[in-house]
Computed example of a mutant assay.
Amino acid sequence: MPTREATLATIQRELTAFARRARSKAARVHPKLSLVTYSMLDHMVETGGCRATDLACHFMLDKSTVSRQTATLERLGLMVRETDPDDHRGQILRPSEEGLRLLRDAHEQRRATYEARLADWADDDLERLAGYLQRYNSEG
């Protein structure tokens, strides 16, 4: 039976491999998007639009990093800025129609990849994996 230290090393190695694949896939979705910019665009959809400060807080990034990333999204035509109806000095960031299309295509590609990689897994194994991932991510 492996030691806890060996098990943690395996988890670290496998999550690192997972992250590397995710970064590689993000680059294939759009060659000028990093995993961070792609994730920001995805977060805008999940929240129905948000402020740059919300992105900074959610991703634990400084405002200048968020500013550079959102400028890239805007320059690529993947994001639009709207006046915040609650505070006309602020802006709400939302994916553009092109940004939404890109996210839909990426979602379909990811789903197909997961279906292929997990095709021979039993349903109870998938449920356990989903539960473990939810548990891991909720203990932020």
Results as ranks from 00 to 15, higher is better:
Thr37Phe: 10
His43Asn: 00
Gly49Val: 01
Val36Pro: 00
Glu5Arg: 08
Ser24Val: 06
Thr47Glu: 08
Ala6Lys: 11
Thr7Leu: 15
Val29Phe: 15
Asp42Pro: 00
Glu5Trp: 02
Thr37Gly: 10
Thr10Met: 08
Ala27Gln: 07
Val36Glu: 05
Thr16Gly: 09
Cys50Arg: 00
Leu15Gln: 10
Arg28Cys: 11
Thr16Ala: 13
Gln12His: 11
Val36Lys: 03
His30Trp: 14
Glu46Lys: 10
Leu55Asp: 01
His43Glu: 08
Leu41Phe: 06
Arg21Val: 05
Thr10Trp: 03
Ile11Arg: 06
Lys25Leu: 15
Glu46Tyr: 15
Arg20Thr: 07
Met40Ile: 06
Arg13Glu: 12
Ala52Thr: 01
Ile11Cys: 13
Arg20Ile: 09
Arg28Glu: 15
Arg23Trp: 02
Thr53Gln: 12
Asp42Phe: 15
Ser34Thr: 15
Arg51Pro: 00
Ser39Met: 07
Arg20Pro: 00
Arg20Cys: 06
Met44Ser: 13
Ile11Trp: 08
Glu46Gln: 12
Ala17His: 06
Pro31Met: 03
Ala19Gly: 11
Glu46Val: 05
Ala52Phe: 04
Thr53Ala: 15
Ala19Phe: 14
Thr37Gln: 14
Asp42Trp: 15
Arg21Ala: 14
Pro31Arg: 05
Thr37Leu: 09
Ser34Asn: 03
Ala26Glu: 03
Ala19Leu: 12
Ala17Gln: 05
